[in-house]
Nucleic acid binder design. Sequence first.
DNA 1: CACTCGTGGGT
DNA 2: TACCCAAGAGT
Length: 295
Amino acid sequence: MPIIAPDARALTDWYGRSARDLPWRRAEFHTVYGAWGTLVSEFMLQQTPVARVIPHLEAWLDRWPTPAAQAAATPAEVVRQWANLGYPRRALWLHRAAIEIVDRHGARVPRDVESLLALPGIGDYTARAVAVFHYGDRHPVVDTNTRRVIARAMDGRSQPGPPSRRDLQRMTELLPADDADSALFNAAMMELGATVCTARTPRCEACPIALQCGWLAAGRPDTGDTRRRPARYEGSDRQTRGAVLKALRDAAGLATPMESVLPDWPDRAQRDRAIDSLIADGLVEASDGMLRLPA
DNA sequence: CACTCGTGGGT
DNA sequence: TACCCAAGAGT
């Protein structure tokens, strides 16, 4: 399989014509909220679809427009505002990150990747997304979309394998030398994967780098999927945790007797296990047999 | 590396 | 209708 790098110019030209108008791509968004806005958007976008994030992001930044404002909130307020975005630990991590930003970075979101990586809830993707999409520095931003584009165009595979550190290295080799060009390239790879080179039904007829795509050249073969099958959600502990936390969010700040949380849940042991794990994560507080969101 | 951790919309 | 999947991170 000959390795042909995507044509960066063709890709960024396409991005200039076709990019979606998303809030965090507007200049005004960066002017008003600075790196904090980008950080919040990236937290929300971790495994939550763009369309569902947008209204929550606007409400969030309206309420907490700076790291200092965020740090002054309580965990209960944060978890309730997170609502049904999913993976509510992200809300706690964002809150803790804000506190560290205030305490250790002068209330300014740090610019260097190492400092960003040291904050809770910030990994390889989010750290570089902030450094690139707000600060404009040159780093490889690798998300699931980017990995799929690389897997198809350069490896001739129908789907990417599991994430690995090699992804970062390969993306680095593709980046244009100029800072601004490389930021555009990062965004364009993600946008291509999100809107054209999609997981299920790719629209190769609309792809700006179709001529360089090894997978298309090979006739779009199904090369198999090396990713593991996700555990069943129905009846899972995750579903139970979600139901418990939703009940406590809906309790509007009042403590709830432990027995009256999901009283009709089929598996009582599973319900208790979910409560215990939520307490261990800091998402729920227990005292005298009562449960509430953490103060 | 393998596994956990929510939620809702699209096909 | 049952999946599939979504700008990942932590352990």
